[in-house]
């Protein structure tokens, strides 16, 4: 039992340092907020034009569509949809061989990086998520939830989304063991991340089978699902089913990451680091 709490304390400290690492760059955060806000404005107007043409498109009214835009800007860095999380550093460590040192540490590789990434995500949510959302709400009429329960449900969905996002990026980073340069996979992951998360366009606007397919993929857990929870599209039992969807993908991908990590470790040991 004592070992457990010690472990927990270790990872909590790791997460805190992940948070602090990003919190140091205040100008960068401010610059990021500015850019997210400009993009939010541009996208918002294109969505207004789209929903003017087709009111109720994808089951959203115009203010829900606008809310989706600003949620996308708020969660862009939280979910590291365009990269920028821990994966670059991990790939670099694999590339240079420093990873051998990490593998011999008493801490578990996957949990260690998960902790830093959770710290990062929390900072991005507070530092880069809140401000654009506030600007969006001031300029446009957004569909903000009235009841605190839904805000809480949203935060849970965001947390589960970060888990899935981490699990995907962990797999991407580990690919560097075999490809010696994660550039290709990182790029593919970024593509999938922006397209299938709903960042480019809400997935319920995708036509027919493409929409069905996109909504079943893990990336939908990153933005589409949290946004729909925020907009009150999933309540009651449906909310639990939605969480189950996120948890299912998180569990499957984290397990895959663990297996891949085991294979990679064996490889490092055989190669002698």
């Amino acid at each position: 039992m004592r070992v457990r709490t010690g472990r927990f304390r270790l990872y909590a400290a790791v997460a805190r340092s992940g948070f602090r690492r990003y919190a140091t760059y205040r100008t960068a955060t401010l610059a990021g907020v500015f850019t997210n806000t400009v993009f939010g404005l541009i996208l918002a107007y294109t969505y207004i034009a789209l929903w003017d043409e087709r009111p109720g498109l994808g089951g959203y009214d115009q203010s829900q569509a606008l809310t989706f835009v600003w949620l996308g800007q708020a969660l862009l860095t939280v979910m590291a949809l365009m990269g920028g999380g821990f994966e670059g550093e991990l790939i670099e460590r694999i590339r240079t061989g420093d990873i051998a040192v990490d593998l011999y540490r008493p801490a578990d590789l996957q949990t260690w990086w998960l902790a830093t990434d959770l710290g990062r995500a929390l900072f991005q949510l507070l530092g880069r998520g809140v401000a654009p959302m506030v600007v969006g709400a001031l300029v446009f009429d957004l569909a903000l939830p009235g009841e605190p329960g839904r805000w809480l449900a949203f935060l849970v969905a965001v947390f589960l989304g970060v888990l899935v996002s981490f699990a995907i990026r962990f797999l991407v980073a580990l690919s560097a063991f075999w490809l010696m340069d994660g550039a290709g996979t990182t790029q593919v992951a970024m593509l999938a991340g922006t397209f299938f998360s709903g960042m480019l366009l809400p997935l319920n606007v995708f036509p027919g089978a493409l929409g069905e397919f996109a909504r079943a993929l893990p990336w939908s857990a990153l933005l589409q699902v949290p946004a729909d929870v925020f907009l009150g599209k999933h309540t009651g039992v449906d909310l639990l089913r939605t969480y189950a969807f996120q948890i299912g993908w998180a569990a499957a991908l984290l397990t895959a990451g663990r297996l891949l990590q085991a294979v990679a470790t064996r490889r490092v040991v055989v190669q002698g680091g």
């Binding site: 034009a49 789209l50 043409e53 397209f195 480019l200 366009l201 606007v205 036509p207």
Partner: peptide, 19 residues
């Protein structure tokens, strides 16, 4: 990556005729 931007526009036009 950049083609996806145009894909988004194509997707929009799968729902509307004019923007």
């Amino acid at each position: 990556v950049t083609a996806f931007d145009f894909a988004a526009i194509l997707l929009m036009f799968s729902q509307v005729d004019r923007l």
